[in-house]
């Protein structure tokens, strides 16, 4: 591999966006639907303090960071210390 370690192959940023945008969109909708599903279910109030829900909310905040390393940060967030 002669490419830079941080470059996704030969793709430009626009090409990466072209390639993965719809997949990312689909996953965001799926996540939104999952959160809605939890809210609709019996006992939804009781799980609001569940650590897994907090993990999702914290992960969403990490996604909004302007710099790379988000996937690693989300993985670390969910790792046993």
């Amino acid at each position: 591999m002669q490419k830079s370690e941080t470059s996704p192959g030969d793709l430009t940023a626009t090409e990466v966006l072209d390639t993965y945008f719809l997949e990312a969109r689909a996953r965001l909708i799926e996540l939104a639907a999952t959160l809605d599903r939890i809210d609709r279910a019996a006992g939804s109030q009781a799980v609001q303090s569940d650590a897994r829900l907090k993990f999702i909310q914290d992960s969403l905040r990490i996604l909004q960071r302007p710099q790379p390393g988000r996937a690693k940060a989300v993985q670390e967030l969910y790792s046993l210390k």
Binding site: L22, E23, A26, I29, E30, A33, T34, D36, R37, R40
Partner: peptide, 17 residues
């Protein structure tokens, strides 16, 4: 349909809702 339309879980959500 993959990526561009609904998923099984979302479709069942809509049936329920």
């Amino acid at each position: 349909y993959p990526i561009s339309k609904a998923t099984p879980a979302r479709a069942v959500d809509m049936i329920e809702m």
